[in-house]
Amino acid sequence: MKLKTITRAAAVATGMTVAGLTLASSPASASAAADCGYACSVSKHVDTGVDSADYQAQVNNSTAGPGVTSWIWVWSNNSGAHADYYLNGDATMHKIYGPARSSASTTLSRDVTSFRVCGPNGFGGDACSAWAHPQY
């Protein structure tokens, strides 16, 4: 755990790019690097005036098991949703898709460093939550 903290602090201090996110060297960026606990969630509500939808994603970086360190879940009460996420040591953005009016989840072999939930905005695009940065 201490090595992760030192690595994160060094990344913030140098303003380098970690997991696809550029961390500046300001105190605000240091606090944003872990803006929720080991288990946290994000949500997005979309109201098009005709219909509405809620999208939600959760991450738990304290999940344990053989080859498992984290878990991610995505849900929607209307159209399908997806969660975008980055894994520790991997600069590629990954996605998990949930079907309409249902959910999907998966276990992961690396901790999630940042994630958000997205779903149809009713106008041909996606609406996404802000990025969350769980502890790991």
Rank of each mutant, 00 (worst) to 15 (best):
K2Q: 12
D54L: 03
A11K: 00
G80W: 14
Q56T: 09
A104Y: 06
F123K: 12
L21N: 05
I72R: 01
N88I: 14
Y38T: 08
S62V: 13
D84C: 07
T92K: 08
A57R: 02
I6Q: 12
T63N: 08
G67E: 06
A28L: 07
T5F: 03
S41W: 04
Y97I: 14
N61C: 07
A24Y: 09
A100I: 06
R8F: 08
S70E: 04
V18K: 00
L87F: 04
A57D: 09
S79R: 07
G49Q: 10
T17A: 00
Y55W: 13
G65I: 11
T63F: 08
S79T: 07
W71N: 06
H82S: 13
A100S: 09
V68A: 08
S43T: 15
T92A: 12
S52G: 11
G37H: 09
D126P: 00
S43M: 12
R101F: 14
A127P: 00
N88Q: 14
V117E: 03
S103N: 13
T14I: 07
G119H: 03
G122F: 10
I6N: 08
C36R: 01
K4R: 11
L21K: 14
A10L: 15
T113L: 11
C40S: 10
S102Y: 06
T107V: 11
T113Y: 03
V18L: 15
A132T: 08
A39Q: 04
A64L: 13
G67T: 01
V50T: 10
S62K: 06
G15S: 10
R110F: 02
V74K: 03
S102V: 07
N61V: 12
G15W: 00
V42C: 01
S109T: 04
G49M: 08
P120K: 00
W71V: 03
K95P: 03
G122R: 01
S62C: 07
A100W: 11
A104D: 02
A39N: 14
V59D: 01
K44I: 03
A34M: 12
V12K: 02
A33N: 04
A34W: 01
D126S: 12
S41F: 07
A34K: 03
T48W: 04
R8Y: 05
T107Y: 11
I96Y: 01
A104F: 06
Q135A: 09
Y86M: 08
N121A: 15
G49Y: 04
A53H: 01
A53L: 00
Y55T: 09
D90C: 09
G15T: 07
G65E: 11
C36Q: 06
T48P: 00
S76T: 02
A34S: 05
S52M: 08
D51E: 14
L21G: 02
S79Q: 06
T63C: 05
V42H: 03
S109V: 05
M93Y: 08
R8T: 15
A34R: 14
G98L: 01
T113E: 04
D51M: 09
P120N: 12
Y55C: 07
S43I: 07
N77H: 06
S31Y: 11
M16K: 05
H94S: 04
A130D: 13
K4Q: 12
T22Q: 07
S114V: 02
A33E: 07
S31N: 06
A30Q: 04
S52H: 10
A9N: 13
S29I: 07
L23E: 05
P27N: 10
P120L: 03
N121C: 10
V74W: 00
G119A: 05
W71I: 09
T69G: 05
G89M: 10
